[in-house]
């Protein structure tokens, strides 16, 4: 089976955690990881949606301790490597060490696209632990290309093996992704990755634009099981990449079966681009805000789109879920005063 030229990381067991309110069970994780491993997926990410230590009132409490899920995934797979996500400021090196002891092979250290310098310590520590280490620049759409390159270079200088452009809001257009990957390829000597969200139905187009410009690490979520409208749909991506003559090493029929038989039943409802999902991409808002905004809309009796658009205007970044209630309360107050 020749050498893979594109390495896929399946994120449903991490990004998908948002879509199911962090309710993964050990059985589900084992079934999905086994299927993915069988289909020859090289990397499988397992963590709370907001990374290690993300279980919280702010983001949602995990039903199952993520370390149990990680341990279960590690012991299930034979070839696949288990990856974890860590957002400095939320998770700490203590949790990273614990995950490494459980047999995790890859660490992805994520910061907002302008704050790479808070990852220096964690990237160095991940390398020390012997992990393949990825720098993950979130909400990349919020800055011009030059800023993204500057921050990616910082992560490279801290020792990252790969840097990802992360379209957390699903807001990028294909030509914007092209420009960014091209600039990174010209300035960095490490591998470049792309993580998309499908809020504007552009995850596939953006992923292909990234690959055309030389990105070799790509994230997908099987059956679109990710935050917001989900990510680039992994099994569809494999089919498309096969047609384009790329080699991901992943068995198409097998991953289709995992999607259909194992992942689809986990979803509370099929992933589609709802009006709120669409607004995330349109307003440039972090995809995991979706369910929180819907809950706030119900609680305060206002349109969830008004909340999300206002959050976009205020340039709220990933992790600021507390702003959703804050903004919703404010909007509802304004509406009340307008009525009286």
């Amino acid at each position: 089976m020749g050498e893979r030229n594109i390495l896929i990381t399946e994120v449903a067991l991490r990004d998908g955690s948002h879509a199911i309110r962090h309710q993964y069970t050990v059985d589900q994780v084992v079934a999905v990881a086994k299927g993915l491993d069988d289909a020859n997926v090289p990397y499988i990410e397992v963590s709370h949606g907001d990374g290690l230590g993300g279980s919280s009132l702010q983001y949602g409490l995990s039903l199952t301790n993520e370390m149990e899920l990680i341990e279960a995934a590690v012991s299930t797979v034979t070839n696949a490597k288990i990856a974890v996500l860590l957002l400095p400021g939320i998770g700490t090196m203590k949790e990273l060490k614990q995950a490494a002891q459980l047999g995790v092979k890859m660490a992805r250290i994520a910061t907002h696209v302008t704050e790479a310098d808070i990852s220096a310590q964690h990237i160095a520590f991940a390398k020390e632990l012997g992990l393949e280490t990825v720098g993950f620049l979130m909400m990349a759409h919020m800055v011009p290309t030059e800023k993204l390159v500057e921050q990616a270079k910082l992560m490279e200088s801290y020792g990252a093996d790969v840097v990802y452009v992360v379209d957390s809001a699903g807001a990028f257009l294909p030509h914007e992704v092209k420009e960014r990957i091209q600039a990174l390829k010209n300035s960095l000597s490490i591998e470049i990755g792309f993580h998309g969200h499908n809020n504007l139905s552009l995850a596939m187009a953006n992923t292909l634009a990234a690959i055309e410009e030389g990105a070799t690490r790509i994230d997908g979520s099987i059956r679109c099981l990710g935050a917001g409208a989900g990510n680039t749909q992994t099994e569809v991506l494999i089919a498309v990449l096969n047609r384009l003559g790329n080699n991901t090493g992943i068995d198409l029929y097998k991953i289709m079966d995992v999607a259909e038989n194992i992942v689809a039943p986990i979803l509370e409802k099929p992933q589609e681009i709802t009006k709120d999902g669409l607004i995330l991409g349109y307003a440039g808002v972090y995809s995991s805000f979706l369910l929180h905004a819907q809950a706030a809309s119900k609680k305060f009796g206002i349109d969830s789109r008004d909340i999300l658009v206002e959050l976009g205007k205020r340039k709220v970044v990933g992790g600021q879920e507390d702003m959703i209630i804050d903004v919703a309360a404010e909007i509802s107050k304004q509406k009340q005063t307008a009525h009286t």
Binding site: L57, G89, K315, V317, Q320, D326
Partner: peptide, 20 residues
């Protein structure tokens, strides 16, 4: 448990704290 978030918006935002 404590979480810290840095927000780069301009003009700079004021410090906000949420306590649960």
């Amino acid at each position: 448990k404590a979480i810290i978030i840095l927000n780069p918006a301009e003009p700079p935002i004021m410090m906000r704290d949420t306590i649960y």
